[in-house]
Design a protein around this nucleic acid. Structure first.
Length: 1077
RNA sequence: GGGCCUGUGGCGGAACUGGCAGACGCAGGGGACUUAAAAUCCCCAUCGCCGAAAGGCGAGUGCGGGUUCGACUCCCGCCGGGCCCA
């Protein structure tokens, strides 16, 4: 169906002054240009003319879009309408509202376009921005367009470069837990206050060649320039490092870990290989702890917070030293491992070292009889020829060889073999593990392949209960096959009460006490109900294949449950078989067991608590053209220097050809600009070198995330030419008193943007990077809050209907027919005649179910579009677009219009005095106003709109057949005001037709008469035994005895009571009455 | 496999903190107006059974249990869907 054919359906013909799509479009364009020319939504900053400091502030922001060539899709305006409603509402409530829009404009698609067409990315991007802006303006969003910018503007990216230099010139002080200027570090080195030593974090995370935490360079005065530089550089938050990177030959760039999915590029799905490259890195790992901790103080969706926490992947584990037996049985060495599950140490039945581990060499040298030198050498040689990726890839088939070395499990005192296997990687942890086959899948596979011992040391709740039963069943309970029923009964009780090990004795007693004497059939109600699940448990136990009670008991006693089931149990549970003379973990939960064993290890000096992170430093270089150039130059020796602040921005060179060299030996694209690359020290303001020293510019560019890391700050003061954001503007918008209950629910709100709405696809990357930069700026005193975004909200995806064949493949909407009825639709694919199922799916070109917002606006107007998208359902839910439903919202506006404007004459229709009907409507209007307020605060726009519809419907009904006016002037005015955030154009038009001066959008939100919110008399349902049997009318403030008496007086209630006195009567004030017999 | 979310009429969805399930909209049925259609306005509408009707009875928020005077809402287990991470 073409979009234009539906135009007539919205009602083009009819009376001349009807609210038609044409009229809607006319009204909307009129008010949009009125707002523009009157600067209605321009929000002055503190100190500027027109700024009113007595008002609270509200900073309400969308995730700015990347303007793609395809233009706006219906997903964009969903979040934008939501923030617009909030912003308009807050403004009417008397807030200073910062509601800006801008463009995330550097990125791969424009460069790909340049490669394909030769059109310069800048020219192309400017065009797409113009399209986006035009489309957005047509929605009537109340952005302060004077603050608009794109990340590609010189006035913006010079400050992106400036912030890069802030990071470059900063280091993380572990003691103070904050970033500090690098100059302070240098000063401490010079003064000898701090030993001149490489950054231990650099050694750990960057794997800088030849650098270890222990390396001490000596006093500052005694070391050469190069050493000083390399020591200082190892501390910078932005640093250069030779990294194994994800190199994508096809895209001609390295990618961040976050941008690689299953070995392919997130964008374009091209193969990615690991390759060593000198890269700029951001030391985000320094902030790992704070990035996790501060999640507690922001008002964010739980799912997003847990995604970030998971990405950072903080795990508390332990480092443990396992003693190694020398050939003469003495112990002179230990083998250090890291584990996140120290609680399973009693189940460590062997160890594994990586083929590259230094211990391998000593095993070969020592010449123990147990060492098969040939086999070990062959294995190590083979492992060397394989990459990490390969080694991980075919992890299913475990290979390995016994080293001949034997270690001692410090918890059990047992001698355990040390194996060499390539499933342990040298680059991770210490290149050695304690293997706990019962509770780690890889260890389990390996143990099975090589016949190593598997011993349970953690049991799930059910297994724990079974073990308890196995130990404590009475002679009678074990007899014959009776134990099966008793166990099933017990397990039913355990699982229904969520029992902990401590509760087992009591539960077993209870099971015995309530056990029916004669097996199934008899017993009290409690046992009968429990019996319902007993059957299931009988089946479950049967499937475990225990031949007898003795078999069960032995399996648990020997700790061979995992082995029996053939699958490792890696979850949390409770410890078992985990005790020695010094410590017992038995019965402790996994979390408790970890703490206790770590305490024991530390006490004995053989292990220590150790925190580990999954988060790696952020790879910050791209070998592309369309990104911010680095403000960095190199001298002829290869040392890097910052471009002086006064020389910013570093602009991109002109380039003819944007095609990357598809190669395994990467060259950044900017290296092609030979003229640009070559510069001098004076040109870039490097003062410590002679002015005419030849310098070479950094040819990498920044990743697409750079510009979006701080744009919210720039909105506060978008035109500032002297600073990235003015101090006062930043302090006002980021920390000022937030208006309304936009205040957050978290215990210690920490300020920042009051509401930030965008898709959850940015849950990790953008939001993590932005938080990181913000924290650095906070530490350096450049911003006032530790977090950028106080409240975050994700709008759901707008999906569309599509069709699915029985084999789950999808069918486009234009080749499917409905051969059923409207009520019972049945869909068939036109080509094959196969019946297909209607499902919801992402809008996509191939499914032919993409909706273009421009068409919808042409057909119904922007007000209807806004209402429809907000009415579809909860903002956070993903929901299907259904064009058919739009007409309901259009009709709503049409009815409202008809209430106020005569369709025949175009004249205003206003009721005079207050008739009886108007009294009811007055109440309804006040109540709707309150409902709308509450709904907006909860972002529950669908229910707010429902309340507005109810008012209009009631007013329409009251008009009745005589066709007279339905609402008074005052009522129409107030209705326009509460409608204004949702459908601002209609509201403005009615407002002005009602003769009001100025913008409805800036008028004060209407007050509410509390006395009209409550009825004097209420109808209460009377329940008998929880079923509604009668209704009574009582005064709203009637006390409980009065209500009880009225309820019992109801004939129906009396009849059901049959003369008996009720056992209890529950009165819920203003809600209902429940009579319990 | 793990984490988070989710399951309510033909459809989208309401339901405050445990208190009348199905607000509001779409689609549907009936009526008024009209020569007619459209548009508009009014009424009906979860399902089953009884009844000519008024009305009555019963069931009902994925399934099975539990807690409670009372459960869409809380707890346990299962099944299905989505997103994220492996």
């Amino acid at each position: 169906m073409s979009s234009s054919s539906s135009t007539s359906r919205a009602g083009e013909q009819g009376p001349s002054f009807r609210y038609t799509p044409a009229l809607a479009n006319e009204i909307e364009e009129k008010w949009q240009s009125w707002w523009d020319s009157h600067g209605t939504f321009v929000q002055p900053n503190p100190g500027e003319p027109g700024f009113d400091g007595s008002r609270p502030k509200f900073f309400c922001m969308d995730m700015f879009p990347y303007p793609s060539g395809a233009g706006l899709h219906v997903g964009h305006p969903e979040g934008y309408t939501a923030t617009d409603i909030i912003s308009r509402y807050k403004r009417m409530k008397g807030c200073n509202v910062l509601h800006p829009m801008g463009w995330d404009a550097y990125g791969l698609p424009a460069e790909q376009h340049a490669i394909n067409t030769g059109e310069h990315p800048a020219a192309f991007t400017r065009k797409t921005i113009d399209t986006f802006r035009r489309q957005l303006k047509r929605f009537g969003f109340s952005y302060d367009w004077t603050r608009e910018f794109a990340t590609i503007d010189e006035g913006y990216y010079r400050w992106t470069q400036w912030i890069f230099l802030r990071l470059y010139n900063a280091w993380y002080d572990e003691d103070q837990r904050r970033a500090r200027p690098i100059a302070e570090l240098v000063a401490e080195f010079k003064a000898g206050k701090r030993p001149l030593r490489y950054n231990s974090k650099a050694a750990e995370y960057a794997h800088a060649p030849g650098v270890t935490a222990q390396t001490v360079a000596g006093p500052w005065e005694q070391v050469d320039y190069e050493t000083r530089r390399s020591v200082v550089d190892s501390y910078r938050l932005a640093y250069v490092s030779e990294q194994l990177v994800n190199w994508c030959p096809k895209l001609g760039t390295a990618l961040a870990n976050e941008e690689v999915i299953d070995g392919r590029s997130e964008r374009g799905s091209h193969p990615v290989v690991r390759k060593p490259l000198r890269q700029w890195m951001m030391r985000i790992t320094a902030y790992a702890d704070r990035l996790v901790e501060d999640l507690a103080d922001v008002d964010w969706p739980e799912s997003t917070r847990s995604q970030q926490a998971e990405w950072i992947g903080r795990s508390e584990g332990a480092e443990i030293d396992f003693p190694l037996l020398d050939p003469d049985k003495s112990v002179t060495r230990t083998l250090r491992v890291y584990t996140t599950r120290p609680d399973t140490i009693f189940g460590a039945t062997y160890m594994v070292i990586a083929p590259e581990h230094p211990l391998v060499a000593s095993a070969l040298e020592e010449g123990r009889p147990e060492t098969d030198v040939e086999a070990v050498e062959a294995y190590v040689a083979r492992a060397k020829s394989r990459s990490d990726v390969d080694r991980q890839a075919d992890a299913k088939t475990k290979t390995g060889v016994f080293s001949g070395i034997v270690a001692i499990n410090p918890a059990t005192g047992e001698e355990i073999p040390v194996w060499i296997a390539d499933y342990v990687l040298m680059g991770y942890g210490h290149g050695a593990i304690m293997a706990v086959p019962a509770h780690d899948e890889r260890d389990f596979e390996f143990a099975r392949a090589f016949g190593l011992r598997i011993r349970d040391v953690v049991l799930s709740r059910v297994h724990w209960a079974m073990a308890y039963f196995a130990r404590h069943a009475t002679e009678e309970e074990r007899g014959g096959n009776g134990w099966l029923a008793h166990l099933a009964d017990f397990l039913g009780l355990v699982t229904s009460t969520n029992a902990e090990p401590d509760h087992m004795p009591a539960l077993l007693e209870r099971a015995r006490a309530t056990r029916p004497e004669t097996g199934a059939g008899g017993g009290d109600a409690g046992v009968g109900r429990r019996g319902a699940t007993q059957g299931e448990w009988l089946e479950t136990i049967a499937s475990m294949g225990f031949g007898s009670f003795d078999d069960l008991r032995d399996a648990f006693a020997r700790g061979t449950i995992v082995e029996r089931f053939g699958i490792a149990y890696s979850g949390a549970g409770h410890a078992i078989n985990s005790a020695n003379d010094g410590v017992s973990l038995d019965g402790l939960s996994t979390a408790e067991a970890k703490q206790r064993i770590i305490a024991w290890l530390e006490e004995r000096g053989i292990g220590r608590r150790k925190v580990n992170y999954k988060l790696r430093d952020w790879l910050f270089s791209r070998q592309r053209y369309w990104g911010e150039p680095f403000p960095i130059v190199y001298d002829e020796r290869g040392f890097h220097f910052p471009v002086d602040e006064s020389k910013l921005p570093v602009t991109l060179p002109a380039l003819e050809d944007f095609k990357p060299e598809e190669s395994l030996d990467p060259q950044p694209l900017l290296a092609k600009a030979k003229e640009w690359v070559r510069t001098t020290a004076s040109e870039v303001g490097v003062g410590e070198l002679p002015p005419d020293a030849i310098m070479r510019r950094e040819t990498n560019t920044m990743p697409g995330w750079a510009g979006s890391c701080w744009y919210y700050l720039r909105y506060c003061d978008a035109k500032n030419g002297g600073r990235f954001v003015g101090r006062e503007a930043e302090r006002y918008w980021m920390t000022g008193r937030a208006g309304g209950s936009g205040a957050s629910d978290v215990p210690r709100p920490i300020g920042g943007v009051d509401l930030y709405i965008g898709g959850n696809e940015h849950a990790v990357l953008h939001l993590l990077y932005a938080r990181f930069w913000h924290k650095v700026l906070f530490d350096l005193g450049d911003v006032s809050t530790p977090e950028p975004f106080q409240k975050l909200f994700h709008q759901g995806l707008i999906t569309s209907y599509a069709y699915q064949r029985s084999d789950k493949t999808l069918v486009a909407v234009d080749v499917v027919d409905n051969r059923g009825t409207e009520e019972k639709p049945r869909y068939f694919a036109r080509d094959t005649g196969e019946e297909v199922a209607q499902i919801t799916a992402k809008m996509s070109k191939s499914l032919k179910n993409v909706v273009n917002p421009d068409d919808v606006i042409a057909d119904y107007g922007a007000d209807t579009f806004r209402l429809y998208e907000m009415y579809m359902g909860p903002l956070e839910a993903s929901k299907p677009w259904n064009t058919r439903d739009i007409s309901g919202l259009f009709r709503f506006l049409q009815r409202l219009w008809r209430l106020a404007v005569s369709e025949e004459t175009g004249e205003l229709r206003v009721a005079g005095g207050a008739s009886e009907a108007h009294g009811e409507i007055e109440k309804l209007l006040h109540r709707a106003t309150v409902r709308v307020e509450q709904a907006i605060e909860k972002l529950s726009f669908n229910t707010a709109i429902a309340a507005l519809i109810e008012v209009v419907n009631a007013a329409t009904s009251s008009v009745g057949a005589e066709n007279g006016p339905g609402l008074t002037r005052g009522q129409l005015e107030r209705l326009s005001l509460v409608l204004c955030p949702f459908a601002p154009h209609v509201a403005e038009e009615l407002w002005s037709r009602l003769g009001r001066e100025g913008a409805c959008s800036l008028a004060a939100w209407p007050g509410v008469d509390e006395s009209l919110l409550r009825d004097s008399e209420v109808e209460l349902p009377v329940q008998v035994q929880g079923k509604v049997r009668a209704r009574i009318r009582v005064s709203a403030d009637a006390d409980d005895p009065t209500v009880t008496a009225a309820a019992l007086a109801e004939p129906k209630v009396a009849e059901l009571l049959g003369g008996r006195a009720p056992k209890k009567v529950i009165v819920v004030r203003g809600r209902m009455v429940n009579v319990v017999v």
